[in-house]
Nucleic acid binder design. Structure first.
Length: 104
DNA sequence: AACCTGACTTCGG
DNA sequence: TCCGAAGCCAGGT
């Protein structure tokens, strides 16, 4: 099977996101070495969410919102984040200034 | 090989 | 501040 170090890197970065914090796709991509690879992060998530074991729900878009649509996991992700103590404002947005993971 | 698609990001009006 | 358009990258058809 084919393994890109970039892909592996993405997965390991996601695993490092601490509970109660979130990271954006672009941020993860940058940490993995490709600032323009946000879409590849999405791909990694799709592939790994099945295997379970990584906090896919802590990855959101640059606006601080969940990118999934209702009935497509949106509610599940929101619930998971709230259970970790993450607060959503009136517009269902997360305050990145407070919850964004600083990386490591 | 060309074209389409996606859990994105950024810039300009 | 909000919305649309363009840019980006890689895998699937």
């Amino acid at each position: 099977m084919r393994v890109d170090s970039f892909y592996e890197l993405i997965v390991s970065m996601i695993k490092k996101i601490p509970s109660g914090k979130v990271a954006t796709y672009g941020q993860i991509a940058a940490l993995a070495g490709n600032p323009r690879g946000a879409r590849q992060v999405v791909r990694a998530l799709h592939a790994s969410s099945q295997r379970d074991g990584l906090p896919w729900h802590r990855v959101i878009n640059a606006k601080g919102q969940i990118s999934l649509q209702e009935g497509r996991g949106y509610e599940i992700q929101k619930k998971l984040l709230e259970s970790e103590g993450i607060f959503f404002d009136e517009q269902d947005k997360i305050n990145l200034k407070v919850y964004m993971w600083k990386g490591n």
